[in-house]
């Protein structure tokens, strides 16, 4: 193959690319400055949204004097595990219906909701190994309403829990960090009456 043949594809090309020194067209510059001014302005358009909430979200403000429907709080926070019928899921999530933890010591019950449980716990004669999340983010009134609800549903007949009891419960273990370690630790803190 002659050199001309070997380089035929390369021969028919134009020069290697280069650039002219044309100035940036003025409309491009004007548009760019317009965009930059918009960006500057837009930052100030977002003043006033709470720093710790999500994008342009406001934190929910709860009126402490408002009354709450315990069944609604239950459906939103509890029913996924303990089920709508309060019976839980066999072997996985313990029942609330007929549970000694629900019916007996009301201060202990408040503490379970405020801190959660992590570990072994015996409920109605069956041992469960699991995790219950804490719900300190709910308002005192909401917690009182849902606790009163579970103590009076599905055949449970225990006394309602007052908002004041939840309020007091929040002050009771100020140094506590993390969930109760199973039923054993709860029994230690609240010795069963015998």
């Amino acid at each position: 193959m002659s050199p001309k043949d070997r380089t035929r594809a390369q021969r028919r090309e134009a020069q290697e690319p280069t650039e002219l020194s044309n100035p940036v067209p003025w409309p491009v510059a004007v548009i760019a400055v317009g965009f930059i001014l918009w960006g500057f302005w837009y930052y100030f358009q977002n003043v006033g949204y709470p720093a710790m909430a999500g994008d342009r979200r406001s934190a929910i403000v709860i009126d402490p004097s408002a009354s709450f429907d315990g069944s609604v709080v239950y459906a939103g926070n509890c029913a996924a595990c303990h089920q709508g019928n309060g019976k839980g899921l066999a072997g996985v999530f313990p029942p609330l219906a007929g549970s000694e933890w629900v019916l007996e010591n009301e201060d202990r019950l408040v503490q379970i909701l405020l801190h959660g449980i992590n570990g072994e716990i015996e409920v109605a004669g069956v041992t469960y190994q699991g995790v219950m999340p804490a719900f300190p983010q709910l308002a005192d009134g909401e917690l009182a309403a849902v606790l009163s609800f579970i103590r009076s549903e599905w055949g449970n007949t225990a006394t309602p829990i007052a908002t004041a009891a939840v309020e007091a419960g929040r002050q009771r273990f100020p140094d506590r960090d993390g969930p109760w370690q199973g039923g054993a630790e709860l029994n230690e803190a609240f010795p069963p009456e015998s």
Partner: peptide, 23 residues
Amino acid sequence: LIGGPVPTWAVTISIVHSVMMCI
């Protein structure tokens, strides 16, 4: 993540920069 659980200021930076990409 607009409208998501990300702080407003972080999303706002991304919006300004996205629009600036027009340049």
